[in-house]
């Protein structure tokens, strides 16, 4: 069991990382990583949705008729996304406005349906929940790494707090979509071309 848990986390975080190995969830990776605060809320939302939709789907896996399997998964995922949206609108209004349509678009994030289909539908609840957490964490650290660099270079701040000195000239490109493309490509290159190659896993 301990070995299985270790494998789930190793896959979700590195070997089968949803962002830089499977290239899933790219839309939100590009869209919300211009500030760390927005990114943190987005990844927390996704982590909640992927973990609890995996758990629910796994609980119901023997009851879900196979011919409406994806319909039921879609319903469960959408419901958890709406929960996140309502909670943000009620308790984190500013962030909810800044994230705009991207919270609702968690429904279309391929990571969630991917984990439901690839794991939760055929595995017991606890490992499915852990698989969701591992995938969510794998998505989280990639997005947060990109967001830290983009906000620091683009605004000279981290979490809205000024880090760079007064003389710092903001790299406007970093907070625009093109900056996200460059940073994501750089991240994938570092992970696959340097880290994984050194470990012989590329």
């Amino acid at each position: 069991m301990k070995g299985d848990t270790h494998k789930l986390f190793r896959d979700g975080l590195f070997k089968n990382n949803p962002v830089f190995i499977q290239i899933l969830g790219i839309c939100s990776t590009l869209a919300v990583t211009n500030t760390v605060k927005n990114t943190a809320v987005m990844v927390a939302g996704l982590l909640f949705v992927v973990a609890f939709s995996n758990l629910t789907i796994s609980f119901l896996r023997k009851a879900i008729p196979s011919r409406v399997r994806m319909m039921a998964e879609g319903l469960i995922i959408a419901s958890f996304v709406i929960i996140v949206d309502i909670v943000l609108k009620a308790y984190l209004w500013d962030i909810s406005k800044q994230l705009g349509p991207y919270v609702g678009l968690i429904i279309t994030n391929c990571i969630i349906m991917g984990r439901a289909e690839a794991f939760a539908i055929s595995n017991p609840p606890w490992p499915s929940f852990l698989d969701g957490v591992a995938s969510g964490l794998g998505y989280a650290y990639v997005l947060l790494s990109i967001a830290i660099v983009r906000e620091l270079l683009g605004y000279g701040t981290l979490w809205g707090i000024r880090i760079m000195g007064e003389g710092w000239v903001n790299w406007t490109m970093m907070v625009m979509a093109s900056g996200a493309f460059f940073m994501l490509a750089l991240f994938i290159w570092i992970m696959k071309g340097v880290v994984f190659r050194e470990r012989g896993e590329a």
């Binding site: 119901l60 008729p65 011919r67 319909m71 039921a72 319903l75 469960i76 709406i82 309502i86």
Partner: peptide
């Protein structure tokens, strides 16, 4: 199938 989907939908609509 119909009963299952109806029940699941009703459950989540109630919670939401």
């Amino acid at each position: 199938t119909i009963v299952f989907m109806t029940g699941l939908t009703a459950l989540f609509i109630t919670v939401l």
